[in-house]
Design a protein around this nucleic acid. Structure first.
Lengths: 229, 229
DNA sequence: GAATTGACGTTGCTATGGCAACATTTGGAG
DNA sequence: CTCCAAATGTTGCCATAGCAACGTCAATTC
């Protein structure tokens, strides 16, 4: 288990915990490790879920099938990601299919052991549950932000409000996008070429400059004006 | 406390629990009741949160201020609603402002008492935490659905995919909307009159009929075609 | 170095849908 | 019943943005 510490340290569940605590908890929770070759389906949409998993090595994604038959990727999990925590809907049937996009190692915990008493009254168990809740809350508010962008009435506003949120601080003017154009367009629910066009316009107007994924805001006050009117 | 049982029974936290269990838990968790006149701000965005609340009587809403300065309503809570459960983001600062839209009675629980051991190893405490998680998950997937609608490329598809989800069963063809036109348009992120126009077109094409909030699907297969192409 | 591929920018065409302004309906209030 | 206000339907105008098609650039392969 010690080999996987780097991944475990990154997991939201173990946020702010000492290495020994993490290892002790893994034991206490009775986690089981599984490995899957690339392409394996870990869980099919519509199946019940009773455990959460932490990605130790590799990558997986959660995708949902729309009524139209397309697949939308709800989440992408890399080393340290917790998944399955919010798959327990009321009926306990998963809305998404989980697929390994690379060879994959996963550590599973039964949800009940996280939520239940371990009988030892350990402080760390409380912390664990708080971390669980904080982690889920963050997923929720990340989604809420996305809804904010999607609800904007124009492409320009979608883009600008997204860019503002991507700054690391309020005074930061440089942004490095985590997506390429295609992915960004898809995230914002707009057409790729229309997105490129809008970026070009913003540059021509002197509001920002960009090169590939690197974007620099030139005129923050004018940018903000665009959003409020 | 017994007066409030009807509201408590409806709360996701106490789903599938007997009345005595609910009352016992309320005591065990050390809940405190507060009352507020209409218009009171219960929590200002940016403030830390350490407790969750259940609406006993009245109504409140959570609203978020956008960068542009507008307010968007994130949630609306009526009797039995649990709120504050997902306000614990990483920094523990609330992204939303909570305001009483009517006179209001609320039962608060410290989050720690829900997550921590009560020292009695009661089975109901485990159930409580599971209910908490299920409740939050449901909020997440409700949001996910909204994202699905907003991501659709046309007003028609936004509307139709929403309508399909509103059916109570897969074979049900009658829908009673929970929103008026204005609210529905806002929810779907489109213009009200454009929404009305699209509804009119769908009716003219014989795909559905409607009268106010009552909508009836006439040609389900053709409706589905519209979504897939 | 030629060729291939993938990411990104550019542009003309056109449908979609936002907007505004007005018409119609409905459900109370008096 | 009459009047009023709120909700909803209707329509013309036009900007926005989707779409397709193509051009450019850089990296990689052979």
């Amino acid at each position: 288990m010690t080999i996987y510490l780097p991944a475990l340290r990154r997991c939201s569940l173990f946020h702010n915990m000492a290495d020994e605590t993490i290892l002790k908890l893994c034991q206490c929770l009775g986690g089981t490790i599984r490995q899957y070759p690339r392409g394996t389906i870990l869980l099919l949409a519509g199946q019940p879920v009773n455990s959460a998993g932490i990605v130790l090595t590799g990558q997986l994604h959660a995708e949902q099938q729309t009524l139209g038959g397309e697949h939308i990727i709800v989440a992408n999990h890399t080393a340290g990601s917790l998944f399955g925590d919010i798959l327990m809907s009321g009926s306990r049937l998963s809305p998404v299919t989980l697929t390994a996009t690379t060879n994959l190692t996963v550590l599973y915990f039964a949800m009940e052991t996280i939520l239940g008493d371990c009988g030892q009254h350990c402080q760390c168990h409380l912390q664990l549950r708080q971390n669980l809740l904080v982690g889920i809350s963050e997923k929720f508010w990340a989604q809420q932000k996305k809804i904010g962008y999607l609800s904007m009435p124009s492409l320009r506003r979608k883009l600008l409000s997204y860019l503002l949120d991507q700054r690391t601080t309020d005074s930061d003017l440089d942004i490095f996008l985590p997506y390429n154009r295609e992915e960004l367009a898809s995230y914002l629910g707009v057409n790729r070429s229309a997105l490129s066009r809008e970026l070009g316009r913003l540059q021509k107007e002197g509001i920002l400059t960009f090169h590939k994924r690197q974007i620099t805001i030139l005129d923050l006050s004018r940018l903000l004006t665009q959003l409020s009117r």
